[in-house]
Design a protein around this nucleic acid. Sequence first.
DNA 1: GTCTATATTTCGATAGAC
DNA 2: GTCTATCGAAATATAGAC
Lengths: 212, 212
Amino acid sequence: MAKADPASTDRRAEIIAHGTDAFVSHGYAGTSMADLARAIGIQKASLYHHFPSKEALFIACVTEGFEGAVQRLEAIRADPTLSDPDRIRAAMAEVYRINLTTPVGRMAPLIAEVAPKIPEVARTFHNGFIARHYAVVTGMITDAVARGSFAPVDPLGLQHLIFGPVITLALSREMTASFPDRDALYPVDRIRESHTDLILRLLAGPAKPHEP
Amino acid sequence: MAKADPASTDRRAEIIAHGTDAFVSHGYAGTSMADLARAIGIQKASLYHHFPSKEALFIACVTEGFEGAVQRLEAIRADPTLSDPDRIRAAMAEVYRINLTTPVGRMAPLIAEVAPKIPEVARTFHNGFIARHYAVVTGMITDAVARGSFAPVDPLGLQHLIFGPVITLALSREMTASFPDRDALYPVDRIRESHTDLILRLLAGPAKPHEP
DNA sequence: GTCTATATTTCGATAGAC
DNA sequence: GTCTATCGAAATATAGAC
């Protein structure tokens, strides 16, 4: 994305950044071009100089938002200096980071809202972001199982066990954003550490029968 | 659905049923009173005979939607004929049923959208539905641990490991509702069975070190 | 590229007949 | 209880000056 004119390109990126946040927070129908313009500090008509319609702006927010997000996970998978458990720890830390500190973790319901109106964004987002994230993490686990580092596990079940709690946590925290006790109800660090430990425990092998 | 006066009382329930589905599918702002009336087959003005405003209708959809949903889980917890593993199996089957066959599993983002405008619905839904569901399942696990049936586990981590994949699955399936290969991407039965097995494996006890 | 001003449609909500 | 008709506000989008 190299550009000559910073005044022009930066404005477009600024609109996309604000727009993504607004769409994720208030939904597609709940985000008005007037509100968005006011948040950025420009006039409504100026938005239409950069994007021909609200729909085009939305598509840009969804499809340009996850560029580069998969590459960090790919790098963790390919890093030869990591042990297999440390690779899982690093991957889960990155999954938590991307889902809890960027809007992407709250995009699923937004896509669902818009899918009947703009069907292609659902495929673009799913194939370009979700499916690739799943594939990288599933791949690094089956790699480790093949090397004998981990016990065999059903990849489909484990994939949902890894991503499900993170995405639900992002949505739960947004739902409770106004609660004064939100961080006590959904403490990110504690949940992430416990989650990671439990996943590694499953990968370590089948259970030894519990003796009361 | 028992019907005494099909003209009057059922109309209110009919509006709430259609409204809940529309709100969950298209968001609060994305659901218009005109569309809702058309879906039911009445005129827009008739909606305002049963509810004074769109906001009042929405609050009714959220607060009346989860009545009785917790009682089935409570019954499973209290059932003396179940073994502890079977109790977990029954509870997870019920969690999957409620989240995947009723709109409640897709309500979190809807609540998040509306929370800035109607703050009280977030607390009502969280305290009345989510927190109680969490408490029942966490309680039946700590009960079993106290009886010696299961190994000790961090209840917070396990709670997210149980509910997270289910809620994310409900959202993923809605996001991909238009995909012809949705059931292949997100096969409910396979995921539920694998998920349940992995949870029971964690509860069975600490891992035996894996030997390649 | 950004602005003011405006066209057009759709929204939530109300009035009043039946 | 449901209808037709309509209001005022807010939405998307456009026209044209600077």
